[in-house]
Design a binder for these strands. Structure first.
Lengths: 146, 146
DNA sequence: TACAAATTACTCGTATACAATGTAAATAGA
DNA sequence: TCTATTTACATTGTATACGAGTAATTTGTA
């Protein structure tokens, strides 16, 4: 099988293109693609535990620890003790990041529109449907799918 | 926009699922997804330069150096001087990896079939078409697309 | 209640990714 | 020919990813 027709290769390269595109739209905010995605999520659902945040954003617990460390160092999130469960921590935005979140959301909307502007409306829906199907199809096969 | 509908997020998670699936099919060969892909490519096109290999596999020169270092340490590839251009190196398989490549190719074919077994034949073609379109659509926007 | 099992977050080691920089070699132009 | 630019590869530093393992805590159960 030609590498170019391998689905794993194709997914990896499409993802590379997407991440690169989204990252380049963030350079002036000094955020990485993942960091912006986490802040965006926290803008909708603040004070979640690390566990829940990981589940929603599809980030491994080990990965998430690092992402949160860097966001905390930048003063963009706060870790707080969970009131009921002393094992857990609650993640919250800071005053700084709270004003930043709306801009991130604008960018994300724009970037989504622009990135797919070469596709017809129908194709965009098809792509989303198929990507969802791919993930759903492997659920359980290797686990870990959020 | 809900994170779950964000195309960058969806591409990242579909890719995660794919890489995980393909990696798990390789554990007994002691290869990573990327390493197997590189060996598979070398099985079809031996003695390519590092530059060409990078272009074909979509690997950054910095990334490729590391991948090749590890493959060389494992005795699976050899770096040789290019006969005409002393800046360039030629990458070749070793006796060890030459016997391994057919097995990798079998695995890759199997994994491709199985990974997409939940999709109809038509959907599989659609997915490939759309992933190609996504990459082609951003060609030039951020460069680097192979 | 005592204690094993499960859970939460973290740490460590390894492997991609990629921007930026360095270095040697090749090539283009004056 | 001699210099300027380009090219090929490597190196460095930072940021995901993920498997494996750990400490603290909670839960389930005998």
């Amino acid at each position: 099988m030609n590498v170019k027709d391998c689905i794993f290769f194709m997914l990896a390269k499409a993802n590379q293109a997407g991440t690169r595109y989204w990252s380049h739209r963030l350079t002036d905010l000094n955020l990485t693609a993942v960091q912006a995605m986490v802040l965006n999520f926290l803008g909708q659902q603040e004070m979640v535990t690390s566990k829940e945040l990981g589940e929603r954003t599809g980030l491994d617990s080990a990965t998430l620890t690092g992402v949160l460390d860097r966001l905390e160092t930048s003063g963009l999130i706060e870790r707080q003790r969970h009131p009921k469960d002393r094992r857990a921590i609650c993640i919250g935005l800071t005053p700084n990041s709270r004003t930043m979140v709306p801009r991130i959301q604008e960018r994300l909307d724009e970037a989504n529109r622009d990135f797919l502007s070469g596709l017809s409306h129908k194709d965009r829906n098809e792509l989303r449907r198929l990507l969802r199907a791919v993930r759903a199809g492997t659920k359980g096969a290797t686990d870990r799918v959020i």
